[in-house]
């Protein structure tokens, strides 16, 4: 009879329960993993071989790398790359927010225009777009104000797209905005419908509902992928060569190598700078993701400052705004 035995297992055993809390510890020969070790050995060997070889190969020009790594022209170009990234992302976030709200609009025309924008800017390569913005000043040499198809009242020369730096920022921002709008839209849609409903039932306007209820909660979804977009943008800035803008990190290192005929060392120099920036951003990204993967509350547990709930509210509000600005 097996049934009574099973039934007895479920009950605490008076014989062993009191004196011996645990069973015997397991002492066993661990399973060997010979393949793991051999693959690791092969990989380490190959890596070592590559490093030793690369350190001696003249094409890498390590002396040149050391010489140009902290060259003033290079560090200035690195600064240009950083500012391009920042301005392009700010533009992309503002335009992306606008496009996201347009796509959620009840107006079908507004919705379609946003969709069309996304279709074009996500459906064509950013390199091609940048080439286009580079020559757009030739297509539209002047801006005019007046009645269409009549002699214009005011004619302004197109100074925007003749400035290659501004062209680069606009070109990168317009492309990125299409991706940012999808991120923002996903964030806004992630907020439970009941939130908007509760806010509406409390007589708050649509704007107040968005500002105080929906957007702060959407930020949790929006910020982590936006961090990734910043890292991606930093690398995409190297494509401004298509405009052609050549004062960024990649452009300048290419310019130097064209004179010195040492392309590889300067590629390494540029790569080291890119790696430095992306590494710093990735560390930041790690902390952002850690912070936003937490529960909905700002604190792990328990109440805010006991003494003054108002103060808690004060510190809480700008916290959201601050991140909104960064994101």
């Amino acid at each position: 009879m097996t049934l009574p035995k099973h039934a007895a297992v479920a009950r605490p055993n008076p014989a062993t329960g009191g004196t011996q809390a645990q069973g015997d510890a397991i002492v066993a020969v661990p399973l060997r993993h010979p393949w793991r070790i051999s693959i690791a050995v092969v990989l380490v060997f190959l890596l070592a071989l590559f490093i030793v070889d690369a350190s001696q190969r003249p094409d890498y020009g390590w002396a040149e790398v050391g010489k140009y790594l902290f060259d003033r022209r290079i560090s200035q170009a690195a600064w240009v790359t950083l500012t391009l990234t920042i301005y392009a992302m700010i533009g992309a976030i503002v335009l992306g927010l606008l496009l996201a709200i347009m796509r959620l609009s009840p107006n079908p025309v507004v919705k379609s225009i946003a969709w069309l924008y996304l279709w074009i800017f996500r459906g064509t390569p950013v390199y091609v777009q940048l080439v286009f913005w580079g020559i757009v000043a030739l297509i539209y040499p002047v801006f005019t104000i007046g009645i269409p198809f009549m002699t214009p009242w005011i004619t302004i020369p197109n100074d925007v797209f003749t400035n290659l730096y501004i062209t680069a920022v606009i070109g990168l921002a317009l492309n990125e905005a299409a991706y940012m709008s999808e991120i923002v839209r996903a964030g806004l849609l992630s907020v439970d419908e009941g939130q908007e409903e509760a806010s509406t039932a409390l007589a708050m306007s649509w704007g107040q509902t968005m500002r105080y209820v929906v957007v702060p909660q959407a930020m949790k979804i929006i910020i982590p992928p936006t961090g990734n977009e910043v890292i991606s943008m930093l690398k995409t800035t190297s494509l401004v060569a298509a405009i052609p803008l050549s004062i960024d990190l990649y452009g300048v290192s290419r310019g130097i190598s064209a004179v010195t005929f040492t392309p590889v060392p300067l590629l390494i120099v540029a790569s080291i700078w890119y790696l430095l920036f992306t590494s710093v951003l990735m560390v930041g990204q790690h902390f952002i993701e850690k912070r936003f993967s937490r529960g909905t509350g700002r604190r792990q547990a328990g109440p805010a400052s006991e003494s003054d709930p108002g103060a808690a509210a004060m510190t809480a509000a700008p916290m959201g705004n601050d991140l909104g600005g960064k994101g």
């Binding site: 409390l202 709930p309 509210a313």
Partner: peptide, 20 residues
Amino acid sequence: FNLFPHMTALENIIQAPMRV
């Protein structure tokens, strides 16, 4: 319930009186 999860209980209550 549909409380606003990013606000304390008190902040939830004072929102509408303050904003509206």
